[in-house]
Amino acid sequence: MILVIGDTNDITTNIAMEWIRHYTKNVKRINFSDYTPLDSLKITNQNCTTKIASIDTSEVEKIWHRRGSIRFLPITLRNANSSLYTYLKKEEDSLLKSLEDILGDTKEYIGSYHKEVENYKIDYLLKAKDCGIRIPDTLITTSKKELQSFFNTYDQIITKDIRYGIKIKAQDSGIYSGGTFVVSEDMITSMKKHFAPTLVQEKIEKKYEIRVFFFKTTLYPMAILSQNDSKTSVDYRNYNREKPNRNVPVLFPKHIEQQILNFIKRSGLSTGSIDLIVDKADDYIFLEVNPQGQLDWVSKHCNYYIEKNIAEYLVFK
């Protein structure tokens, strides 16, 4: 049996499910927004068995963890503002991580909740560097002095989050951002001597960006031609809706492809999306990886049929 962990409104889960069902009836789907009963995770001195939503997991051969996670907390307990929920979620989180390890031991588990929540940019930058892929020079600091000197070293620097996109709720407004921004001299001047850990990187003048979705060792690279658009020249996520960036299929030079495959292996990721930049000198620079990144747009713009290929892997391989 194939088990898919996705979400009700996740287009990729929906399309892939159509394909999987086209090939087999032997598939079960779990949605992030639903409550999934944990019938039992039973550990005795003889063995360890799990039954989730009436599915005996010993019958599952492959799991594709597309998005989110299973959620064992009944919906009535999910009151975002209560500290009870915060606590219960923490408990659930540790259970999910253990469960992923247990299931991963006996069956093929593609995708990961664990990797998604612990998607630390710094770790992956180091891993990419170790594989010989260029990375932007990076500083994480709490000191204005260090920041100023880093700023002085490069033509321009940018800042982005270390792990979590900005999501700060205030009384009557909020600050939200998941993007990348150029740091100006004025910004630094206005900062205090010490501040919360902040990540900055040299800004790389790019020819174009590459978003590569990978599933196992198959790469689906797409070039994002954003270099002519001031809105997206720093970060393609700052969309221009009238004239959206051109997205086209692209290939890697052989040695770069090998480096990326090495990185995937080293990172222990079975699927995900990597963001890279190609600079003016045709160097490939690793930016970050998203274990549960969106792939619908890559599949559609490049006519890759990624969801069909995933389904065929799950059913036939």
Partner: peptide
């Protein structure tokens, strides 16, 4: 109309596949 772009590495930009599939 942004129908074209200039690149010193045209060999890295393949044509889009013309395949059409549908599960149902």
């Amino acid at each position: 109309h942004e129908f074209i772009f200039f690149t010193a590495t045209p060999e890295l930009f393949p044509k889009m596949s013309m395949n059409w599939y549908q599960p149902n």
